[in-house]
Computed example of a mutant assay.
Amino acid sequence: MLTVSNLVKQYGKQKAVNDVSFHLDGGEVVGLLGPNGAGKSTTMKCIVGLLRKTAGEITIGGHDHLSVEAKRFFSYIPETPYVYDLLTVWEHMQFIAQAYGVKDWKGRANELLELYELDDKQKKLGRDLSKGMRQKVSICCALLPDPQLLFFDEPMIGLDPKAIKNTKEVFRNLKQAGKTILVSTHLIDSVEAIADRVMIMKDGRIIGNDSIDNLRAQAAQGGEGLSLEDLFLELTKDE
């Protein structure tokens, strides 16, 4: 579904992403973890085409990641949600449906807005939404086209507890439907319950890429029984 080969993103002499390679299969939920400045968001932005990569190859569904064919495969939810100031919540859904050619979309749109408690905010303009509501609209827009691959960059930031719980349930349902999800997050406990695999980044490189159990085995002696948070701190600590 997604193949990243030798990805490099360089700013001057600084490599924000340094020779990163990984593969995502269909139906996987993969957590992308790392401290601030590790390169998680930069990696994701290169994949979806918001940043121009310095080197490397990225394919989505067998197509170059910048092609129209590839863009039909995925949705992207950014860390900072962007909405159109002068479109209402409902008009955002309508816009996405038209852009992706989604037929009979209104029923699904109503379900998503109700799930995220936006059904009574349908006529509200984007400029009048709180950050949390913008995040909810962003997630609803991403889910409406029913993509095969979803990229979530810090999806829980700004969400209330009920919306976080609902988003975790959305992840489980997407996984059962055979969708592929890459989640970049600092909220480690939210990934531990749903991820098949985690990738841990540090200084622009992936230093761990395996199931949680296998990473525990690779961690420092006494790693048996470590929580994902303990494991993360063990692998990313400065030598």
Rank of each mutant, 00 (worst) to 15 (best):
V30E: 09
T236S: 04
S184V: 12
P81D: 09
D104R: 07
I194W: 06
F171C: 14
V137N: 01
G61N: 08
E91W: 00
G39M: 09
K40N: 11
N36D: 15
D213N: 10
S190T: 14
E28Q: 15
G62R: 03
A195C: 15
L33C: 12
K136V: 12
A195W: 02
V30T: 10
E224H: 07
A97W: 03
P78Q: 07
L66D: 07
A55L: 00
F73V: 14
E224F: 01
I139L: 07
I77M: 13
T185F: 02
I207E: 01
E91S: 03
F95A: 09
Q218M: 14
E239P: 14
V137C: 00
G56Y: 02
L125M: 12
T88K: 07
E69Y: 03
S5L: 05
F232E: 11
V83F: 05
F95N: 00
N6K: 14
Q218G: 09
N214T: 13
I164Y: 00
A97K: 02
R108C: 01
A220D: 12
K131Y: 07
T54M: 04
N209Y: 03
V4G: 01
L233N: 05
K103C: 02
P35W: 07
V17R: 05
G27Q: 08
T180V: 09
L51P: 02
V83D: 02
H63N: 14
K136Y: 06
V68H: 07
I207G: 06
N214A: 15
I212A: 06
Y84M: 10
T180F: 02
L129W: 00
K168S: 13
K106A: 15
L7D: 05
F151W: 00
K168V: 13
N209S: 13
R52V: 13
G101D: 05
A38N: 05
V30Q: 06
Y84W: 06
Y116R: 01
I139M: 04
K124T: 15
S21P: 10
N166R: 14
V102N: 04
D104E: 15
D85K: 11
G56T: 08
T236R: 00
T236I: 11
G26K: 15
N36Q: 11
V4T: 03
T43Q: 08
N173R: 15
Q221K: 13
R197K: 13
G39H: 02
E154S: 08
A220E: 12
K103H: 08
V20K: 05
R172N: 13
L115S: 10
R127S: 12
L32M: 15
